[in-house]
Design a protein around this nucleic acid. Sequence first.
DNA 1: CTACGGATTTTCT
DNA 2: GAAAATCCGTAGT
Length: 203
Amino acid sequence: MPIDRDFYNRESTIVAKELLGKYLIHESDEGILCGKIVETEAYMGIMDKGAHVYGGKRTPRVEIMYGEPGHSYVYLIYGMYHCFNIISNKKDIPQGVLIRALEPVKGIEIMAQNRYKKEYIKLNKKEILNLTSGPGKLCKAFNINKDYNGEDICGNKLYVEEGNKEKVEIIETTRIGIDYAEEDKYKPWRYYIKDNDYVSVKV
DNA sequence: CTACGGATTTTCT
DNA sequence: GAAAATCCGTAGT
């Protein structure tokens, strides 16, 4: 069951924290993919120098951010990799949560094929850890591309569900890859689950 | 272990 | 024409 849209209709820092430990599900053509969300980043809208919508910028690419919460924002970065975000907060307040890392739960065979064109059994330990331990990697493993931009995360194709409600210890720290964001690059808006092997960068 | 650079294309200036 | 919310392979310590 997808989580209710109200869940996303809040500050992205809150949504980012509460997404940790939940499951991202993709009912792809190859089969069901499921990963536990272990690392997220909040992008806080037009006041955030690290965000694509900083200063109220409104371009075709970021237009989806100004829409209803609970939709996806997928974009191509460095010409080769996709990043997957979930739009948070209400219409006209363009905030989002970048999903930075997952722990594979179901459909690992499919992820192995998507990432390496190899069977899971043939992967070495490092390759297994690298299946979904980064924003570009998890998009490749989950076969998320630009076709999923604007997808409804409250639908039945690509969505988040509750998971097993385990207690998680959350680390708050600074974001990654936004050196141009001046003072905002030091904002503690990256969150991850303590001691999880699939977190992309630890403190 | 860290450091560097190349890949590759969309997006905005 | 430059930069980008990244990743990976290679070279050096």
